[in-house]
């Protein structure tokens, strides 16, 4: 049986999730040059927000067609609140501070958010079951389930909406201007603080979409789910060219596919039998990142070389 189509589909799905989360990294970075390492945790809180809607707000037996949009809204609200709150209370006071200070804040925030969920969300000290969309469909040699379709569709819709927003809307253009030159943008009458908040909010919402997709696909969520996903998404954002929203999605897809294919096929290469399998997949993903950056230091779609040491 030829497994390549199925593996490509696996990679594409994983990659879209990375891409959705990576948007948050890349937008914030593009505007304030801040690596928001706590973004993975914002993704995680989005998942718990959605879980709350399903288990504690909606009546039992709500059909998924009704529940999913409401969960998206619930998760989105939680993630946006936390993202914007983090910006307002943790990052904004540090805007004039040394460049590495926000990074340490982000690490602290990341720990704190994980621990808040673990300590205070009922049953969150271990994985919690999440409603699934488990009906499967066979498309030739590929098997996918409803959650996968939800993930792909929402990734496409989100990207299209974001592209439209950034290009056409007034705020979107203000955002581009702020990214290019914050000082000039401010002189032109753009409220840069508002733009930064909007960037955090959009990042938070996209993370929540990814989180709902994650829950529907894997069937459970836990307080540590954000850490690795966040790390991967950050890698994806850099791979695609940090600061570029299309780059983030492309980087996510490339990373997801690379990881899946490495895990699936590296051990079939003669001499590499021992270096294959899922436990080495991250190594190959990072190797790919390093090679890409060596050839294209600004990332796949990055345009300018950030001159910030």
């Amino acid at each position: 049986m030829n497994t390549l189509p199925q593996q490509l589909a696996n990679g594409l799905l994983l990659g879209s999730m990375y891409g959705l989360i990576a948007i948050g990294y890349t937008m914030v970075y593009g505007i304030v040059q801040l690596i928001n390492f706590a973004h993975g945790e914002i993704f995680m809180t989005g998942a718990f927000g959605a879980l709350t809607v399903y288990f504690y707000i909606l009546p039992d037996g709500t059909p998924m067609a009704v529940a999913v949009p409401l969960m998206l809204i619930g998760g989105g609200i939680v993630a946006i609140l936390i993202a914007v709150g983090a910006e307002r209370f943790a990052y904004r006071p540090l805007r004039g501070a040394p460049r590495l200070a926000p990074l340490i804040t982000a690490i602290g925030l990341s720990l704190a958010l994980q621990e808040v969920v673990r300590n205070f969300y009922p049953g969150a000290d271990r994985a919690r079951a999440f409603p699934g969309l488990d009906a499967t469909h066979d498309l030739g040699s590929i098997t996918i389930k409803d959650a996968d379709i939800f993930l792909i569709v929402s990734a496409v819709v989100c990207m299209a909406a974001l592209a439209y927003f950034v290009r056409k809307s007034r705020t979107g253009r203000a955002m581009q201007a702020t990214a290019q030159d914050p000082d000039t943008a401010q002189l032109m009458g753009i409220d840069t603080n508002r733009i930064i908040v909007i960037a955090f909010a959009i990042g938070g919402f996209f993370a929540a979409v990814a989180a709902v997709a994650y829950g529907l696909k894997y069937g459970n969520v836990d307080y540590r789910m954000g850490f690795l996903m966040g790390l991967k998404a950050f890698t994806a954002a850099v791979l695609g060219g940090i600061g570029n929203i299309y780059g983030a999605m492309l980087g996510g897809l490339v990373l997801g596919i690379a990881e899946t294919l490495a895990s699936a096929y590296i051990d079939e290469i003669p001499g590499m039998q021992q270096l294959g399998g899922q436990s080495w997949a991250n190594v190959w993903a990072f190797c790919l990142l390093i090679i890409v950056l060596l050839v294209r230091p600004q990332g796949l779609l990055g345009e300018r070389v950030a001159d910030r040491a």
């Binding site: 990679g11 894997y218 540590r224 690795l228 699936a264 899922q278």
Partner: peptide, 14 residues
């Protein structure tokens, strides 16, 4: 072999 903390096992399952 997988890593602890991994969530996606699509490739393995295939």
């Amino acid at each position: 072999h997988v890593n602890t903390g991994d969530k996606d096992f699509g490739s393995l399952v295939t």
